[in-house]
Amino acid sequence: MRTRVFAAPDDLVNWEWVGRNLDTIAERTWQHVYLTVIAVAVGFVVAFALSLWILSNPRVGKPVTQLSAIAYTIPSLAIFALLVPVTGLSTLTAEIGLVMYTLLVLVRNTVAGLEGVPDEVLDAGAGMGYEDRRLLWRVRLPLAMPVIIAGIRIATVSTVGLVTITAVIGQGGLGWFILRGLNTVANRSTFVLVGVVLSVLLAVVFDLGIQRFGRYFTPWARKVA
């Protein structure tokens, strides 16, 4: 026998509450967006630097990817907890953790993209008198774009999800609603649904946005032979 302790399905979402709290929702959504954007942006800069390093020095490739794979394995809650004694319950703690999680995917895709450029293209470029730098910026990088963009999409979507967990350390963006939902009785399902639905929407919007952006910059990749 099931005992109904919680809200009945017909008041799954308390729209009245939602109406009254639109500003809080907007504020949390915005926090979610900037936590995500900062994490992915910083993550990408770090990953790009690491990738260039790996490219010029293939020996570091393995240790770097292994380290980021291990970092990726450690549960995020544990990472945040380990950082709290150092950086406190702060945005910085959240960002350090979030950036760490982006690195594996971003480094892997960036390196794969840069290394995946066909030899004959590089050979022809060098043969026509491209210097190494020009070859990197004008040939390797543009050709790696589709793979790099794919990495950024994956990293961004996962980051949107991980941001919700930072609610536990007082950040969280939309995760704040989810956590509230777990901790209160009144409007429980409203909190949870607002948090979950909006963060899924955010993930989808980011994903499609980056995909569009990527297509715009790689017109040559639109049709693949």
């Binding site: 066909p118 004959e120 293209v121 022809a124 470029g125 040939v139 050709l143 790689t218 040559w220």
Partner: peptide, 12 residues
């Protein structure tokens, strides 16, 4: 310089 697999720049 011309090579067998041509090596045209796919993005140009």
């Amino acid at each position: 310089y011309v090579i067998q697999r041509v090596g045209l720049f796919p993005h140009r």
